[in-house]
Nucleic acid binder design. Structure first.
Lengths: 215, 215
DNA sequence: ATTGTTATTGACCACCCTGGTCGACAGCGT
DNA sequence: ACGCTGTCGACCAGGGTGGTCAATAACAAT
């Protein structure tokens, strides 16, 4: 592992990317170290020179990914914004930026707790649990409840808004499936996204709340 | 295949269930015929006596599942209900009932277009396309647009409502993960679901629309 | 009882892929 | 010339793959 960290950044990243993709796509058991080394462009021996086993590699990736997400995503969320929807808007932007920096980490994290049937070392489990907690806090802490209409349960409104945003993101992903991400101009999609957010405000906030920008 | 259809219902179902589960869980390539026969409680030879190859089996399942969904789900939707949300409510109930009859079919269909890399015979592709079309019609055809508030784009409202419902269903599935489905009393969850639907009506319909049942 | 037909099994096949090892060797500083 | 570190990929035993087939069981017809 110290051996691995001594490599130049570029090679490290190539191996990391190859491994993250492989595990994200196939889960732990069915992930193939052969495919990883081929994709990474290194000899089989080197993988086991850097990491002493497949499992060792997996745990390294887990910790790496958790750290990445905390540093490049969670820690950049502005918690002083008290408007729930504005906060989610901001969160989406920051997440998008982090994903642009490294898509594989997010894909990997999406599947890693589900496909690892064995027990991960406790310090990683702790990190994961902490991530889940701060992820929640990030969304719900210090929100101005007075913006919401009084005739709907605010907790339920929270959920409906989150599901809506998830729904849009999933649909967008499906719509853009197969296209080269780098070549896409995302601006119109952001515009569309904001339109949805405005509707959510109209629907779940009190009349007269927030900034009505008539474009 | 004629051989297979000559079996007693019970045995047929056991084999179908085993195969549907296996393909749903592992996709086509990584699904194992060995596991299927073990799960179904038959000898290896019989599977290839009934179906001439793994692929043949897969295509049979695809057709079977599509027919099942059309018959037990789509054809039972009441298209005379013009209230969008009421229709989705009704649709959810019918879907739930169909799923109770055979969960595996739905799981299988969820993954089958994604994990079959080879080309399916055209008559199956046609059936699939037809299913997608009528599935859409089922949701959007003949809905009363006048119920919706005038200050939001109705198409967007449609989407938001669907995403919300999907969101609730996914969360419920996650919440109930690992429990024995047969032993669950679903009534309270339906109640909760209806509460969400009422909020959606309040949010996206004109004031004074629909039946306000104060429970 | 005999024959023929059909249903059923699981050992077996050749093949492929697995995580991991190890001897060979290259590059480089000394 | 020597030793050290990095690098490779052929190789290993083990296990899983879809599919086959000789053996037999079950049953029907004669």
């Amino acid at each position: 592992m110290e051996k691995f960290k001594g490599l130049d950044e570029e090679k490290q990243q190539k191996i990391l990317d190859a491994a993250l993709m492989e595990f994200a796509e196939h889960g732990y058991e069915k992930a193939s170290t052969n495919r990883i080394v081929k994709e990474a462009g290194i000899g089989k021996g080197m993988l086991f020179y850097y990491f002493k086993s497949k499992r060792d590699l997996y745990e390294f990736l887990a910790e790496y990914s958790l750290d990445f997400v905390v540093e490049k995503y969670f820690s950049r969320i502005d918690l002083t914004e008290t408007d729930f929807i504005e906060r989610l808007k901001h969160t989406s932007q920051v997440k998008f930026q982090a994903q642009t920096e490294n898509k594989n980490v997010f894909n990997f994290l999406g599947t890693f707790m589900l496909t690892a049937d064995f027990d991960l070392p406790s310090h990683i489990q702790q990190k994961y649990e902490e991530m889940r907690k701060t992820g929640n806090a990030m969304v719900y802490d210090n929100v101005d409840l007075s913006l919401f209409r009084e005739d709907v349960d605010v907790q339920k409104a929270f959920k409906l808004i989150r599901w809506s945003i998830e729904g849009y993101q999933n649909e967008l992903l499906q719509r853009l499936q197969g296209q080269n991400m780098a070549s896409i101009d995302f601006d119109p999609y952001w515009e569309e996204f904001y339109e949805y957010l405005e509707i959510l405000k109209k629907s779940f906030y009190k009349k007269g709340s927030g900034s009505n920008d008539y474009s």
